[in-house]
């Protein structure tokens, strides 16, 4: 297994005028290919900032960030954008689907920026939607499908450019428990087929789906534990909440 992500002495301060608010101090972290990591911590702990840095959306104040062996800490905005389109997929709590575009068009969007041709684009998007079980909803608009289905569309969108890692920011935060289990099932299936997943959550029962849990508190890593390697249950049989 290769090391996909390596953080060395990462610091992040927010600067507002003369007030400097430190958010992350001296984070050291490695994530290997094929891991399923849950970042946990209370609000204000810095877990979201950490995920934004990991997801190449935010820059660091100091420290070294190696993504796939490449130092990305000092990259320009456009270079980061190009890395995001090629190597990263995002799943957000609020789905962030374009409301006036169909499900298929939403999933094709990352490929538009990647410069994939129209026919190929459609083929890849259809495959991604089929893999999340939504092949029959492609022409629907986001407001015509359920919340759980919307998040599955978002997962298909994160998946469609074949990224090295998928970042999921509270992916079940807006979902009921049944939909949550479905979404987690899909993420686990993706991980089982080799996809690296980094997920932010504050729900312990959701974090249990991950193989490794990193707890963040006051901008530092509080604990980093591997969960018991019990076999994951298929989503359809997990009828009771795990907590």
């Amino acid at each position: 297994m290769n090391t996909l992500i390596e953080l060395k002495h990462i610091k992040k301060d927010y600067v507002n005028g003369e007030i400097i608010t430190p958010v992350l101090h001296d984070i050291n972290l490695s994530i290997m290919e094929g891991e399923f990591v849950a970042l946990m911590g209370p609000s204000g702990s810095g877990k979201s900032t950490l995920m934004h840095i990991l997801g190449l959306l935010d820059t660091t104040t100091s420290g070294e960030y190696l993504f796939n062996g490449r130092d990305v800490a000092k990259l320009e905005k456009d270079a980061l954008a190009i890395m995001r389109r090629n190597a990263v997929g995002f799943v957000f709590q609020a789905f962030h689907l374009l409301p006036k575009a169909t499900v298929l068009e939403n999933v094709m969007l990352p490929l538009v920026y990647k410069g994939v041709e129209g026919d190929e684009r459609k083929k890849l998007a259809e495959a991604a939607l089929t893999s999340v079980g939504l092949s029959d909803r492609m022409d629907h608009l986001p407001n015509q499908i359920s919340g759980g289905q919307r998040q599955r569309v978002a997962i298909a969108r994160a998946l469609v450019n074949d990224p090295a890692v998928i970042f999921a920011d509270e992916p079940t935060g807006n979902l009921d428990s049944v939909s949550s289990e479905q979404v987690m099932g899909i993420l686990k299936d993706l991980n089982a087929s080799g996809r690296t997943i980094v997920m932010v959550t504050h729900e312990p029962d959701i974090a249990l789906h991950a193989k490794r849990v990193i707890r963040i508190k006051d901008g530092a890593v509080q604990s980093d534990t591997m969960s018991d390697s019990k076999p994951p249950l298929p989503p359809s049989t997990s009828s009771t909440p795990l907590s």
């Binding site: 905005k77 456009d78 954008a81 995001r84 389109r85 090629n86 962030h96 374009l98 969007l109 920026y113």
Partner: peptide, 16 residues
């Protein structure tokens, strides 16, 4: 604004 944020997150550059 959200749409722009999403487009940038999935890899749109400033000039795009």
């Amino acid at each position: 604004t959200k749409e722009i944020g999403l487009r940038k997150a999935i890899g749109a550059t400033e000039s795009e």
